[in-house]
Structure formats: structure tokens, C-alpha cells
């Protein structure tokens, strides 16, 4: 993908450094993600992938460097502000609202697009009620899109892992994001579930949403990513299309050191 460096980049990361005390988790990271693409971030355990996600979504503030998103500097901002700018995410550990039903989980994702005034809500104004009907319909449509419509009224914690991960993606989409960060969407899933997840990620891209993907399943990565960034020990060691990465000796070295074979 030969593209102009500025105009079409949704996410731009410059000289990003993240240090925890004496430990440097990310060193001088540069990253540019073009709008409407799927960008995979791969690397052995401890490479700094989740740290990168936490920096992009505002869970952590970088030690140095800036993150720009859609024209805004987002580094150091609070997570909910970043969410409002159009970044949504899932979690490696699957952070669903287990005290709610499936559809309620997705409805929480509409929070940014509705009125949540304390007093209007407490008074039960008609506007709040009609809004509630609307977001329920919206959430149902999203559940339909991800394939969980029939589970809408189940409790979230009753779903098997595969569906939990799908639900988390559905919830992430409910915020109407420009960019979704998916943290290991296929981890722990069987082959069929993995295929479903991969198909879903492609469908998200087809909606025009940019995807940032951390994943270990190389088959998924190679099949659906447009670009791959490889991290190792907090440093970017390679970047390119799946074909370029497959043959990159540095990448093979990093992975063989971790005794995982590249497909």
C-alpha cells in the first residue's frame, strides 16, 4: 500500500515511549494506520502489544511521544474522552458487564450517543423512554450483525467464551467507532469460532471501520490483515504486508526464539 503519509492516516503514533519504573515496555514506536484498513500488531509475549493498546485507548499515559487520532492529540487523555473521539476496544481478558444481559451490554455501548442526564433519567421523562426503545432497536440490529440476536436476553456471563468475545466486539461497535482495537479476538477459540471471528472482522472493515488487531493466530493474521506491524521487546522490528512479513528474517528470528513457527 503506497499511500501519502498524511491525509489518509487515521492513527499516527510518533516516538512513543512507555516505561514502568525502570522497565521500558515500548521504545520509540512509530506507527501509521490508514483509514479503512486492518492493521495487525504481532509479536511474542511481552512484546508490548497490549501496552500499546492501553496507550491508544487512554488507560495509560505515554512516558514520551504523541498519539494523534483523526486530527486530535489523544495521548494522555482519559479513556472516555478517547472513546468519544471514535476509538473503541475489546480486552484480552474479555471485560463484559457480567451483571447484565447480552443486549444490555451492547446498549451500554450507546452511552455516548444518548442523553444520560441524572434528573431526566430519575424523573423517567418520555424522551428518555423513547430513546431507550431506539437504542434497544439499535443494539438488536448490532447483535444481528455479529450473530448473537438469539441470545439477546441471556445473561452475559452465561455465554461460552467464543460468544463472549463476539459480544465484546458487538459492544465495541455500538459506540459507532472510527477505529476498533481488538485484543486477541481469537485467543482460546476453536477453529469454527475463529473463522466466525475472522469473518466478522472482515465485515467490520467492509463497514468502513478501521481495525487494529492484536492476535497470535497467524492464520487469521495472514488472511485478513492489510498491514502487519511486528513488535519484539518493545521495539518495532518489521512492518509490511502479510507477504513481506512472512519472508522477513528478523520476524522469523524473533518468533523462533519464542519457538512459535510462522505459518
Amino acid at each position: 500500500m503506497a499511500s501519502e503519509p498524511h491525509r489518509s492516516h487515521l492513527l499516527e503514533i510518533e516516538d512513543l515511549v512507555m516505561a514502568f519504573g525502570g522497565l521500558t515496555a515500548l521504545m520509540n514506536i512509530q506507527l501509521r494506520v490508514a483509514k479503512g484498513t486492518i492493521r495487525a500488531i504481532i509479536g511474542p509475549n511481552g512484546a508490548g502489544k497490549t501496552t500499546l493498546f492501553n496507550l491508544i485507548t487512554g488507560v495509560l499515559s505515554p512516558t514520551e511521544g504523541t498519539i494523534r487520532f483523526n486530527g486530535h492529540v489523544i495521548s494522555g487523555q482519559k479513556p472516555h474522552k478517547i472513546a468519544a473521539l471514535g476509538i473503541s476496544r475489546t480486552f484480552q481478558t474479555v471485560e463484559l458487564f457480567d451483571n447484565m444481559t447480552v443486549i444490555e451490554n451492547v446498549m451500554v455501548g450507546r452511552h455516548l450517543h444518548i442523553s444520560t442526564s441524572f434528573f431526566k433519567c430519575g424523573l423517567g421523562l418520555p424522551a428518555i423512554r423513547s430513546q431507550e426503545t431506539a437504542i434497544e432497536a439499535h443494539a438488536m440490529a448490532l447483535l444481528d450483525f455479529v450473530g448473537l440476536a438469539d441470545k439477546a436476553n441471556s445473561m452475559a456471563d452465561s455465554l461460552p467464551l467464543g460468544e463472549r468475545k463476539i459480544l465484546e466486539i458487538g459492544r465495541a461497535l455500538a459506540t459507532d467507532p472510527l477505529l476498533v482495537c481488538l485484543d486477541e479476538p481469537a485467543a482460546g477459540l476453536n477453529e469454527t469460532e475463529t473463522e466466525t471471528a475472522a469473518r466478522l472482522i472482515k465485515a467490520i472493515k467492509d463497514k468502513g471501520i478501521t481495525v487494529l488487531l492484536v492476535e497470535h493466530d497467524m492464520k487469521v493474521i495472514m488472511n485478513i490483515s492489510d498491514q502487519i506491524t511486528v513488535l519484539n521487546y518493545g521495539e518495532k522490528i518489521a512492518e509490511g504486508t502479510p507477504e513481506e512479513i512472512r519472508g522477513n528474517p528478523k520476524v522469523i528470528q524473533a518468533y523462533l526464539g519464542d519457538s512459535i513457527a510462522v505459518v
Binding site: K78, V108, H111, S117, C121, G122, R171, A174, T175
Partner: peptide, 30 residues
Amino acid sequence: FTIRLIQSPTGRALRAIHASEAAASAMGID
């Protein structure tokens, strides 16, 4: 007032915070 609140988006946001602050803030909840 409180019953209405619980059934409303505000109540849902509160329960979301209870279940997972990380996820709640990622959904845009302050």
C-alpha cells in the same frame, strides 16, 4: 426516582462501572 434511574441509561452506566471500570470507560462513560 431511584427505580426510574436504575432502569435508565444512567443506571445501566452505574452497573457497567460496577462490573468493569475499564470496559465502562472504553464505552465512553465518564
